[in-house]
């Protein structure tokens, strides 16, 4: 007899860099409460078509149960990126830029009854929160660990997957726990607030208006508390 797996709804909020349109946001999120799979990827802003690469990574993890951090599965995703971005005639600079390839950080989370498993590469982080307290965070655990050169998942076939930087965590969860998947600017902010206040700030709720998150991002940036980067926060409550 198969146990019934409850679904866990995800509340996803995202904002582009200040002065940019949402269409220019290079973060991607995907999630499926039935399968309990959720993913966030952050496309490198200086790389080619990184919004396409981050979307491919997130969707493949959630919809096809592909783990981008397994080399044998990554190769196929790299081919998909190349086929998607090379359509039609392109100017010289686009052709040259595409030859350099793309890159993104990646975090995938699988939540089942009572258990979770996360895989990640880079500084898109998972925070496990219980009753407002931070139980664990990773791949980065402190706000001072964020750098400008996080490990990335690259499209270029000549760049091997840095498996030594792959981060994997498994554990248990309780009803009422929250998992936060956050790209670097938001993750750094949340960890810093926790270091300062001993608590994680209030997280977005499913019935919150989207505008509330955008206002929060604007205020935090204006106060110098949030880096001007694409900002994505996905909250899964168990």
């Amino acid at each position: 007899m198969t146990a019934h797996l409850p679904g866990f709804a995800a509340t996803n909020r995202t904002a582009p860099k200040q002065g940019r349109a949402q269409a220019e946001n290079e973060d991607s999120f995907d999630g499926n409460r039935t399968s309990g799979r959720y993913a966030v990827a952050d496309g490198a802003s200086t790389a080619a078509r990184s919004e396409v690469w981050s979307r491919i990574l997130a969707e493949a993890f959630v919809r096809e149960r592909i783990d981008p951090l397994r080399p044998e599965q990554l190769a196929d995703l790299r081919d998909r990126w190349w086929k998607q971005v090379c359509s039609g005639s392109l100017p010289w600079y686009a052709q040259t830029k595409l030859l350099e390839g793309s890159a993104a950080t990646f975090l995938g989370l699988t939540v089942t009854a009572g258990r979770f498993r996360a895989v990640a590469m880079g500084d898109t982080c998972l925070l496990h929160v219980r009753r407002g307290a931070l139980l664990a965070a990773g791949p980065l655990e402190r706000s001072d660990q964020f750098t400008r050169t996080p490990p990335l998942v690259y499209t270029h076939p000549a760049v091997e997957l840095a498996e030594e930087h792959a981060w994997v965590r498994e554990g248990e969860h309780e009803p009422g726990d929250a998992f936060v998947l956050a790209t670097d600017a938001v993750a750094k902010h949340l960890l810093h607030r926790h270091e300062q206040d001993g608590a994680v700030p209030p997280l977005p709720k499913s019935d919150d208006r989207v505008d509330k998150f955008l206002t929060w991002v604007h205020e935090q940036r204006a106060a110098g508390q949030l880096d001007n980067d694409d900002a994505t926060m996905c909250v899964i409550r168990t």
Partner: peptide, 17 residues
């Protein structure tokens, strides 16, 4: 003279901007 100024001097594949 890179998109995000001096912060990106040392990398060509950064996630920040």
């Amino acid at each position: 003279a890179t998109p995000s100024g001096l912060a990106e001097l040392t990398t060509s594949a950064d996630t920040g901007e």
